[in-house]
Write a protein that binds this DNA or RNA. Structure first.
Length: 286
DNA sequence: CACCATGTTCCTTG
DNA sequence: CCAAGGAACATGGT
């Protein structure tokens, strides 16, 4: 499900639902998801605690759990991998097919499900230390972005997927940001001039901010039933098809006309991932 | 059967 | 030590 905007919208949705709720029990149906802790250690550490707050860092959900009898508060990380979902549902509803971790909240429960089980739900917060700046925060500056890019000979599209450069940009929004900035995905990072760096910096922020705004207003089903259950890459929430047609400009649009110049959008493979771009609007190293 | 998929991590090679 | 590339992880859709 997730790149930064999808996680952000999910966090805004879940936060109020979880606030103050006590975790009565935890069922780990997929032990792999809570590594490196064992399911037992995981459950023991959080059972009985209440949710204090929910935040986001890059593509990670950061749950803060209240302290237990004078002890320290505890942070729990959620990462949705490619296909992870999180939802709050009535305790008597049927569990989603690939439920991995279930938090019993009394009348409700928080369910983490994931068809491919690439995600994580863990007390190990070390991954946060590896992340680069939040692209929408004040610590993401053009100067620092430029310095980091200047050190790399890797293609700029591949660089953008490195979470230590900027946190939260994934395969979809990397293509979208480069298209918006009119920068070729194949251009070596160190060869972007100052103008392009500035343009890309602004485009990353704009693309992410617009996606958050869109996902916040569009009707989404959070029960995990429909196709629009918090996923808005493909804009499949009911009644939003028209709007969706204009949302992602190049991603998954190989062969379709570029919305700016009508040249066919091209798909290439970089670092084993698809990249979509307009070979005419995004020049340099074709 | 083939190929593709929103992400991260680990291993190998240079 | 670092950079870069590729496979692996597991399941489903087309």
């Amino acid at each position: 499900m997730p790149e930064l905007p999808e996680v952000e919208v999910l966090v805004r949705h879940l936060g109020p639902l979880l606030h103050g709720k006590r975790i009565r029990a935890v069922a780990v149906l997929r032990p792999k998801l809570v590594r490196p802790a064992t399911p037992d250690e995981f459950a023991r550490a959080i059972t009985g605690r209440r949710f204090a707050s929910l935040g986001r860092r890059g593509k990670y959900l950061v749950f803060t759990l209240h302290a237990r009898r004078g002890g320290p508060a505890l942070a729990m990380l959620g990462h949705l991998g490619m296909t992870g979902r999180m939802q709050v549902q009535p305790a008597r509803a049927s569990l989603p097919r690939h439920a991995g971790v279930v938090f019993d909240l009394g009348r409700f429960r928080l369910v983490y499900s994931d068809t491919r089980y690439f995600g994580r739900c863990t007390l190990d917060t070390r991954p946060l230390a590896e992340l680069g700046p939040e692209p929408l925060g004040p610590e993401f500056t053009i100067a620092d972005f430029a310095r980091r890019l200047a050190r790399s000979h890797q293609a700029i599209k591949v660089r953008l997927l490195d979470q230590s450069l900027v946190a939260g940009v994934g395969n979809i929004y990397a293509s979208e940001a480069l298209f918006r900035a009119r920068v070729s995905p194949r251009l070596a990072a160190c060869r972007l001039d100052a103008r392009r760096v500035g343009s890309l910096w602004r485009s990353i922020r704009a693309v992410l901010a617009e996606a958050i705004a869109w996902g916040s207003t569009v009707p989404l089903n959070w029960d995990g039933a429909g196709r629009g259950d918090g996923v808005f890459y493909y804009g499949l929430a009911p009644g939003t098809r028209d709007y969706y047609e204009e949302r992602l400009l190049v991603y998954d649009r190989a062969g379709q006309p570029c919305p700016r110049c009508r040249a066919p959008i091209q798909r290439i493979v970089q670092a084993a991932r698809s990249t979509f771009f307009c070979p005419r609007c995004q020049r340099g190293r074709q």
